[in-house]
Amino acid sequence: MYTKKVMDHFQNPRNMGEIEGASGVGTVGNAKCGDIMRIYLDIEDEIIKDVKFKTFGCGAAVATSSMATELVKGKTVKEAMEVTNKAVMEALDGLPRAKVHCSLLAEEALQAALWDYAKKNGIVIEGLVEPKPFEEHEEEEEEF
């Protein structure tokens, strides 16, 4: 059901772990499935020097956290803002329909970490809004 890339990132997750004294930490949870994701950012001069994650979730959740961290590593904060769930999914060669929400979790966790960083440093990141407690994303489902 998962692509090769997803399986690869699931089996060999990149950037798994924690950063002590991180510049920003974001934790989000998915009300629908109960899964939880946390991203740590180490930011210096607007550049993401290091990034780590921890995930309690399905295979897609692990793979998207891994891919999301890969995509932002070494990038500027502004560039990191472009790492949406879509970008992550594309980088993974797609996800099953019922697993799209897992990639949203990754996007949300990243933005929550950026928000934490911005708040701590009193800066404003363009386009970034305060993360709300993660809400249910209804999957597309046929109703009878």
Partner: peptide
């Protein structure tokens, strides 16, 4: 505790 079922199953499958 602390782990999620699908990940566990996929790892077992591997």
């Amino acid at each position: 505790e602390f782990i999620e079922g699908e990940s566990l199953l996929i790892m077992l499958d591997m």
